[in-house]
């Protein structure tokens, strides 16, 4: 294939953009990772930041994991993220799909009512009282049910469903498929990219959830990782109590890496589905 001059210029632009993004995101992130492996004194000596560590130590990680608190928190977080994301996706799909069918009487009204909740939020205390009234306080459900559907994600998914060609539904109906059948066999396979995206959004929200845990969880054994992590990071300021010893910068960075690594490792596996989703899109054409 002969490539035109234009085409080459285009490629150059594309690579230029990608390279730029790679550098500006990678360098600061590298700092965080490198700092977590650098001995504290070395870090200070080199002005507080290290791009490529010359001396490597695992001290920060050892110290961080020594009391087992973080691992316990990690286990809770994993449970909440897995169960929560599955339920989030089911609930969001079940709600977004009917609402995307604009011919359905009432779909506009319900959408409006739902968007209203995004614009008007009730505040911490009233929400707390309802969560308590529903009897989920101090269980992992308190971290799942009150955020079952996010309006933003719902609208994005609904917009995606609306973009699917109308003929598909017509054809399926003529074939005698039920609505559930259409959703399961026709819509879902075509929606893998959006499912993965929205699933990722939900998973990350669960992974980073902090305030819900602070409010709804008092049982120390149910405390998710972020709460434990935040306590480590929070005392990063100077001492307010004479007893406090500020965790060294290296320890804080180790905690950040520890908390972020699992989700970063999982992402490339999800990315595969983006490609598969494209294939599904091509098949239908």
């Amino acid at each position: 294939m002969v490539r035109s001059k234009n085409d080459r210029a285009f490629d150059a632009l594309v690579y230029g953009i990608l390279l730029f993004v790679l550098l500006i995101t990678l360098i600061p992130v590298m700092f965080v990772v490198s700092m977590s492996f650098t001995p504290y004194e070395e870090l200070i000596k080199r002005g507080g930041f290290v791009l490529i560590p010359t001396k490597v130590t695992m001290t920060a990680y050892k110290e961080m994991l020594s009391d087992g608190l973080l691992l316990g928190g990690l286990w809770i977080t994993v449970q909440v993220t897995v169960i929560g994301t599955i339920l989030n996706l089911i609930a969001t799909t079940l709600t977004a799909y009917p609402l995307s069918r604009r011919q359905m009487p009432g779909s506009k009204l319900v959408t409006k009512l739902i968007i209203f909740t995004m614009l008007f939020s009730a505040g911490t205390i009233p929400t707390f009282l309802i969560v308590k009234a529903t009897g989920v306080m101090n269980t992992i459900w308190a971290m799942i049910l009150p955020s079952l559907i996010t309006v933003y994600n719902l609208i994005v998914m609904k917009a995606f469903f609306e973009g699917l060609p109308e003929e598909l539904f017509e054809a399926a109906r003529i074939d005698g498929a039920t609505e559930f059948g259409v959703l399961l066999r026709i819509v879902m396979p075509m929606s893998l990219p959006i499912m993965m995206t929205i699933g990722m959004y939900y998973a990350v929200t669960h992974w980073n959830a902090y305030m819900v845990a602070v409010l709804y969880i008092t049982d120390a054994e149910l405390r998710p990782m972020q709460v434990i992590l935040r306590r480590m990071l929070k005392s990063a300021n100077m001492d307010y109590n004479a007893e406090d010893v500020v965790p060294a910068e290296t320890l804080r960075m180790a905690a950040v890496c520890f908390a972020t690594a699992p989700i970063v490792i999982i992402y490339p596996f999800i990315q595969k589905y983006f490609v598969k989703g494209t294939l599904a899109g091509a098949v239908k054409g």
């Binding site: 990608l18 390279l19 993004v21 790679l22 995101t25 990678l26 600061p28 992130v29 965080v32 990350v204 980073n208 950040v256 908390a259 972020t260 989700i263 970063v264 992402y267 490339p268 990315q271």
Partner: peptide, 11 residues
């Protein structure tokens, strides 16, 4: 690039 680019989101 894409994988790296979303890293800051988690910080």
């Amino acid at each position: 690039v894409q994988t790296v680019s979303y890293l800051p989101h988690f910080l």
